[in-house]
Amino acid sequence: MSDNVVDLPIPGTANRKDTAAEAVAGTKAGRVKRRLTSRWATLAALIIAVVWTIPTFGILLSSFRPEELIRTTGWWTIFQNPGLTLDNYRDVLFSSSASSPQLGSYFVNSLAIAIPATLFPLVLAAMAAYAFAWIKFKWAGALFVFIFALQIVPIQMALIPLLQMFTSILQPIQAQIHDVIPLIPEQTYVQVWIAHTLFALPLVIFLLHNFISEIPSEVIEAAKVDGASASQVFFRIVLPLSVPAIASIAIFQFIWVWNDLLVALVFSGGTADVAPLTQRLAELSGNRGQDWHRLTAGAFVSLVVPLIVFFGLQRYFVRGLLAGATKG
């Protein structure tokens, strides 16, 4: 039966395939024309790209310059004031600070926090967004608006009540798990995951709802008529069709979690067991902020993974599969 659903001759999907095929053809033709007609557009794009990159490029150069030069001359004078060094990176990567050693473990923590904290809210939000868009119920609109409005609740205001709950409920359970499986430390990622997940939900539901609600209704109705259950519709139609939206939102959620400091400060306990990279990098500039030159290198160390994720996931949303493609 489940196979049936996939093989259904759904009008929307058929349409979609054609569009995709045409898109390829159109692209080639378009490319030739583009270069003839939109020289100004290309120039404008180039200018924006350069302006947007210069600040980052400057800091990239600076991160290879010795402290003395960073403090006294601009990076654009690199030819008048030559001198390149890996010291900043050495400080960031290998500084064997006894209080916070081993950057590697922070790095693993960051990954271990960010991957589930991206998957959990996306799945839960996709489910909720599907319910809001395709299951009719009373007050659906009002509830959706309410959740939308919750985006504005400042995270700072939610930290203390949440921490109280975690302390009284979650921590005893964690202690017990630690007793049973000593491999798992008492201080686990669970708090951080939950916190990130629920703080992300309103925005992710809002974003996903916009895409999921634009899936042509014929597609979903056709599946239902064929007897697909709600979960089948969700897994076999809604999710695959929303892949571009999910991928782009996943990138941003991943980055927000990766770069988060506030949630980590409160819920990680600050030990090498849980604390992510940001927490370590924030301390690099030292007690009185005097070593800020190290942050130049720190910025790039923490940039690597988000860029990899971006490169890895961007292929999903450049392919013209966006939900709503067949609208109109």
């Binding site: 980052t56 800091i59 980055i255 910025a299």
Partner: peptide, 22 residues
């Protein structure tokens, strides 16, 4: 092109602060 303009999104806040200092 995309990555160039996307990069600022991916930079941590600590990084952005130092970038604009310069």
């Amino acid at each position: 092109y995309k990555v160039l303009v996307f990069m600022p999104v991916a930079i941590s806040f600590v990084g952005a602060g130092i970038i604009w200092k310069f």
